[in-house]
Amino acid sequence: MAKEKIKAKILRFDPDKDKQPYFQDYDIDVNGPVSISELLALIRRNIDSTLAFRTYKCYKGSCQTCVVRYNGKVVKACATQIMPNSEITLEPAAGGKVVRDLVVDFAAM
């Protein structure tokens, strides 16, 4: 089915276990472009369900709680498209303490 891939480097950190954050590489099979939200959901469903990111959110570009740092720039995960065959880096956004992986306890929301 899926002929194309996206390579994602994701910064992971569980304060209970890890001394330092570290990058983990994922190769994700896709059919055409996907949003970052979809990409993360694909990882969780098909590759690694321990990856943490915000799921209780709007998915429609409104609520802002899905923001992540994508190739260094803060974007809304649901409203940012990733093209097949690209290599990307995802890190937690600033604005609060990292709860785990990409989940931030935002001070302002």
Partner: peptide, 14 residues
Amino acid sequence: VDKGRPGRSGATPC
């Protein structure tokens, strides 16, 4: 209590 962030989860923001 809210499973997301209040004012930013649920259906109202949509």
